Computed example of a mutant assay.
Amino acid sequence: MTPVLGFVGVGVMGEGMCRNLLQKCGLPVHVADVQAENVARLAALGAVASSVLRLRDTAHTVFLSLPSIDQVEAVCFGAEPLIAPGGTVKTVVDMSTSDVPRTRALAERLAAHGVGFLDAPVARSREAANNGTLLVTVGGPDDLFESVSPWLRCMGSDVVHCGGVGAGQVVKIMNNMVLLSTVNALAEAMAIAEAAGVDKALLASVLRLGSADSFALRLTGEKLAKDEFPEKLFPTAYALKDLRLALALAQSSGITPAVAQATATLLDEACARGYAMNYYPVIYRLVRA
């Protein structure tokens, strides 16, 4: 029988990811989300509007793109669980950025139900999600990675098997730690330059020509220069969540990450000042103050 794919969570990143999967995989894709309008847009393109309970009895492989491990666990084993005796789900692929120990515990719990698991968080931007050019870092067994990777490649131009369960999350969390710390440095540089009488936009354009050029600069430099930090982009609260995951990994390893800790403190203060849902480079406003 033709396998049915499921996708839970089609928000800011998940919608573009699911659209690329739908248009490229050649298989039925059933979609569930708490926001009906998100599902409706994909249904207009040929997806099947569904729910977690219906996915339990129809889908073979289910991809999750959710805010955190809390929602991932709730979808799998909550009040209306994806996983239950007699269900059709054989593989769960968590494309969220999730806590590493809890990810590994979830994989063990799923295995007890005969369900395979991959952690496959994504990096880059919303534009990359829409264009199918994400970086996907994957943790899990070799054979399961090989069977699922063609579908992951519908969503990402770079799909990297990083090791066993949890390894994909470790690599993604470290990616975000470096990104967020770099943006902190950029915010400081722009505040200093502005105070010294140099235009922020000019600084951003010149940095791109030199050794300070980076993906972080190209991703956030324009917003920093214009002091524009809208909602519905990667918000400060999500950035802080990811950085706290990095700090927890560091603590468990006996490492003191001074740069990441300073950035987390700034993000925490930004949330406290009412910027929790603004695009995370809004920390510039705190540096400048």
Results as ranks from 00 to 15, higher is better:
3 P>V: 04
10 V>Y: 14
12 V>T: 13
13 M>Y: 09
14 G>Q: 13
17 M>N: 05
18 C>E: 09
22 L>Y: 04
22 L>G: 10
24 K>C: 04
25 C>D: 11
31 V>Q: 11
33 D>E: 10
34 V>R: 15
36 A>Q: 13
36 A>H: 13
36 A>D: 13
38 N>M: 08
39 V>F: 11
42 L>I: 14
47 A>Q: 13
48 V>F: 07
49 A>Y: 06
51 S>D: 06
52 V>D: 06
53 L>T: 14
54 R>Q: 12
55 L>K: 13
59 A>V: 04
60 H>R: 14
62 V>L: 05
62 V>W: 02
65 S>P: 08
65 S>Y: 01
71 Q>E: 11
72 V>L: 06
73 E>C: 10
73 E>N: 13
78 G>L: 02
79 A>Y: 02
89 V>R: 09
94 D>H: 15
98 S>C: 14
98 S>M: 05
100 V>T: 01
100 V>K: 02
101 P>E: 12
102 R>V: 00
106 L>P: 10
112 A>H: 10
121 P>F: 00
125 S>T: 15
127 E>W: 00
129 A>G: 05
131 N>H: 11
132 G>H: 13
134 L>M: 10
135 L>W: 02
139 G>V: 01
146 E>D: 15
147 S>K: 14
148 V>F: 10
148 V>N: 10
150 P>D: 08
150 P>A: 06
153 R>Y: 07
155 M>D: 03
162 C>S: 05
165 V>A: 09
167 A>Q: 07
167 A>G: 00
170 V>Q: 13
171 V>S: 09
172 K>M: 04
174 M>H: 05
174 M>E: 00
175 N>S: 10
175 N>A: 03
180 L>D: 07
181 S>M: 12
182 T>D: 04
187 A>S: 15
187 A>F: 06
188 E>L: 00
190 M>R: 05
190 M>T: 11
195 A>K: 15
196 A>K: 09
204 A>G: 03
205 S>K: 15
205 S>H: 12
208 R>K: 15
208 R>S: 14
211 S>M: 05
211 S>A: 14
221 G>I: 03
221 G>A: 07
232 K>F: 11
235 P>H: 14
246 A>R: 12
250 A>G: 08
252 S>W: 03
255 I>S: 01
257 P>K: 07
258 A>T: 08
260 A>I: 00
261 Q>L: 01
266 L>W: 06
269 E>Y: 04
270 A>L: 08
273 R>S: 08
273 R>T: 01
275 Y>L: 03
276 A>T: 04
279 Y>K: 01
281 P>A: 03
